[in-house]
Design a protein around this nucleic acid. Structure first.
Lengths: 212, 212
DNA sequence: GCGAAAACTGTACCGGCGGTGCAGGAGGCT
DNA sequence: AGCCTCCTGCACCGCCGGTACAGTTTTCGC
């Protein structure tokens, strides 16, 4: 029981690195089993086909992904009283953490599954969709809290604003890889941070100006 | 000579749709030849392997991509005297054009190649990098022109700002696919538009306020 | 320590796919 | 007529995903 989970986890670990490095199609099962020191039969004992591997991979990735966001923005929320300051600090911490990765962000499995789209079943597409919606509600909650305190300079839909965070993350990963500049992703996050600061600090300045 | 080019173009057209729909690995050569009504030998007469197909596909895609940006931002530049207004109009036109696509943006081949990364040779990675750099210099030129007229509310590196446009485009494509909401990409472009307007119109307002 | 279940191994096989090699043919240009 | 471009047809290779299934070791609860 426990042994099986450990092997399964080892396969997933090796598979994730390989898939993020060269895509799902280019990652062969034979390669995974030689690297984990298991036999082909052993592999198919754990995952009855490649699609199931993809699902497990994605679920594992998303759990970890959510854990990281919880940690970073949770820490930021503890350090700052103000919701805007907390969010800006969170973006900064995230940017720094990504900048510390020596080879840059390894890649996002959600993006991989999007690109391979129709190669997978509807179940995986649905997990992907739910993940994107979860990101949306996570960041929307933060923006909603900010908007209770700060009036935005321009009225922007909180959902669209929340999606902007995911958009910059996903786009930053792609652009970092295309440019071969690991620093691009953290830099783009800081640009987004400036935009958000401008959006809300502009608002409070306007209110101060109107009051005077 | 002309006949060959036509067949080649037909293969590329079919291949692009297939690759964007389900990824490169999941697109089989056999499938391409049945759809174009050519034989396997005929295919390998035009492309000596799959890697060469990828290169041709990418080059064709980038030519078309550049043509579209030239058109849209060229038109915008003609319609507006002010460089900021021209850029904002260009983003709006681009957003509208993307919103008009019934099934959303079909996908970006640069992102596909990034995701498959090590499955291709260095030549393709280099084309990808040059494409990203070309986007950067295209939009940097626009921001440079804007900055001659408007002072940004915050000092932001024109390169980073330029990359933000590509980042939002690439990220928006991924998020649109993940969410299964074709409207997400054009919406995100409009959010970026708001950010850019805020960045520069905030600047001019400050100068006007300082003068009064 | 024992028995059952879980976690594998080994082997043999299948079909699809990327890719090679080569011979030959149709059609147009000179 | 002869050559070149553009293909077709065919035979073949090796890798890979996947199946089937019998047998073996490891682990864990009792």
């Amino acid at each position: 029981m426990r042994k099986g989970d450990e092997t399964r986890a080892r396969i997933l670990q090796v598979a994730e690195a390989a898939v993020l490095a060269k895509g799902f199609g280019a990652t062969s099962i034979e390669e995974l089993i030689t690297e984990t020191g298991i036999t082909k039969s052993g592999f198919f004992y754990h995952f009855h086909d490649k699609n199931e591997l993809a699902r497990a991979l994605l679920e594992r990735y998303l759990e970890n992904d959510n854990r990281i966001y919880d940690e970073i923005f949770g820490r930021a929320r503890e350090l700052a009283d103000d919701p805007l300051q907390a969010f800006l600090l969170g973006l900064k911490l995230l940017s720094e953490q990504l900048a510390d990765l020596p080879n840059g962000h390894p890649g996002c499995l959600v993006a991989v599954m999007c690109v391979h789209e129709r190669a997978f079943d509807r179940g995986i597409q649905e997990i992907n969709r739910q993940a994107a919606l979860a990101w949306r509600s996570r960041f929307r909650a933060m923006f909603a809290e900010i908007m209770e305190v700060y009036e935005p300079r321009e009225p922007l839909d909180p959902d669209r604003l929340a999606d902007m965070v995911s958009t910059v993350l996903e786009g930053g990963i792609v652009m970092s890889k295309a440019l071969r500049e690991p620093s691009s992703l953290p830099d783009q996050l800081l640009v987004l941070r400036s935009f958000v600061r401008m959006l809300f600090r502009g608002g409070i300045e306007r209110r101060a100006a109107a009051a005077s």
